[in-house]
């Protein structure tokens, strides 16, 4: 059998459950949100966000869906609004959330349940 050709038109696995492919479409949608999160590499920007979240989001031109997702600390909504996890992680850092905390929030588990799930994966 011919092995699959890896091109945009030749891959049947475009829909992977629970997974958003961050491609050009999502990159366009999420640009303002991701740009804001990228700014959090600098301490003074993290402090400015904490001092006035609304003003900071306004400055970066977030749309209402993005703002609402940030207000509600809703990671899945941030992703739906175009957020990229590598940049969102910097926002999560401001809230002192680890990647286990983020995992629990996205899967509807408690943090302990999520950590247990990871440990179980090692026993398989």
């Amino acid at each position: 059998m011919e092995h699959p050709v890896d091109g945009p038109r030749f891959d049947h696995r475009q829909h992977i459950p629970g997974t958003t492919i961050f491609d050009g479409r999502m990159a366009m949608r999420g640009y303002a949100l991701n740009k804001m999160c990228y700014s959090f590499n600098r301490k003074e920007n993290r402090e400015a966000f904490v001092a006035d979240e609304e003003a900071y989001m306004e400055k970066y031109g977030l749309n209402e869906a993005q703002k609402q997702a940030v207000r509600e600390r809703d990671v899945l909504a941030m992703i739906a609004a175009g957020g990229n996890i590598y940049y969102l992680a910097k926002l999560a850092g401001i809230f002192r959330l680890s990647v286990q905390d983020l995992g629990a929030m996205q899967t509807g588990m408690t943090v302990e349940e999520f950590k247990r799930k990871l440990l179980e994966a090692g026993k398989g």
């Binding site: 992977i16 459950p17 629970g18 997974t19 958003t20 990671v75 899945l76 992703i79 996890i85 969102l88 992680a89 990647v99 983020l102 995992g103 996205q106 899967t107 999520f114 799930k117 990871l118 994966a121 090692g122 398989g124």
Partner: peptide
């Protein structure tokens, strides 16, 4: 590993 989405925590030994 996967950090994002409902499939966060996915691992495939």
């Amino acid at each position: 590993h996967q950090l994002d989405g409902e499939r966060a925590g996915f691992i495939n030994p």
